[in-house]
């Protein structure tokens, strides 16, 4: 289990990364924390010609704040977030999520941008940031653009990023004081990949009511206007108003045919709702 041969580059700026990544004569892979890519290289599931290490680029570790949002560079680690070394505009929700990602050794190196770009359906950030309404700031050969995290992932290990594009940072809208947040993941044991993820964000001051069912076989199921999931009322998401048929139908539409899998997803969503109600 040793990686196939590859070249290694560690550029100091984004332009150089893009220049390498858009070359058509070679296969490149971007390396951030390497917590997923490392094993894939060793298992020879990924065999790039050039591994482009993006951790020496200052912009990718930047942190910006304004009244509306916190922007975290792609190479900010889960541990940075867990330990509060970066601001949490979400009333502690970010660090709570970070704390439950895999194991501390993984969190020390794994990055928020890497997790999004890797697009593992069972990962925490793709579901949580979708529920938070976060945007990925993307740079590529054609310049910069923003992409809602809710549409970033197009399938298991597949994203809407074009060839040569990379995620530079994630802009995470701040919660208002009225925000209620609930997150729950079902996993076999501490640190394991999720079997089901439920997320609920109700922030009436900002007119936000979102729900996400994640850790499906593919992209998370995002209810951008989740009021419909709770009988169309404008109140807070509540267990007794959860439209189970609608949630179940969304899972079936997403291809989840197994009844026990659906039960786990519904359970995760219900528990996220419960946590939001207690928040």
């Amino acid at each position: 289990m040793k990686a196939a041969n590859f070249e290694y580059e560690r550029p100091g700026d984004i332009k150089s990364v893009i220049a390498l990544a858009e070359r058509e004569d070679i296969v490149t892979k971007l390396l951030a924390g390497g917590q997923s890519l490392g094993p894939m290289l060793n298992l020879r599931l990924a065999q790039p010609d050039v591994l482009v290490d993006i951790t020496a680029i200052p912009e990718l570790k930047r942190v910006e704040e304004n009244a509306d949002a916190v922007t975290l560079g792609a190479c900010i680690t889960h541990a940075d977030i867990e330990d509060g070394r970066v601001p949490d505009g979400c009333a502690g929700a970010l660090s709570t999520v970070a704390r439950d990602i895999a194991y501390r050794a993984v969190r020390n190196r794994g990055t928020i941008g890497g997790s999004l770009a890797h697009a593992d359906p069972a990962a925490d950030w793709i579901s949580c940031l979708a529920a938070m309404g976060a945007e990925a700031l993307v740079s590529g050969p054609a310049g910069q653009r923003t992409l809602a995290v809710a549409v970033l992932m197009t399938g298991a290990f597949d994203t809407a990023l074009a060839p040569g594009e990379l995620i530079e940072a994630v802009r995470i809208p701040r919660f208002s004081r009225s925000a209620r947040w609930g997150y729950f993941k079902v996993s076999r044991k501490t640190g394991e990949m999720a079997q089901a993820i439920g997320v609920v964000l109700h922030d009436p001051d900002r007119g936000v009511c979102r729900a996400v069912m994640g850790a499906t076989e593919s992209a998370p199921i995002v209810f951008a206007q989740a009021a419909a999931l709770f009988g169309g009322t404008s109140g807070a998401p509540a267990l007794d108003r959860l439209d189970l048929d609608a949630a179940t139908q969304a899972l079936i539409t997403a291809g989840i045919t197994d009844a026990i899998d659906r039960k786990l997803h519904i359970t995760a969503l219900k528990r996220a709702i419960g946590r939001a109600a207690q928040a």
Partner: peptide, 13 residues
């Protein structure tokens, strides 16, 4: 084929 598929109890279990 990996320890992600073959689960072993850890300290918390």
């Amino acid at each position: 084929s990996t320890l992600a598929d073959y689960l072993l109890p850890g300290p918390t279990e």
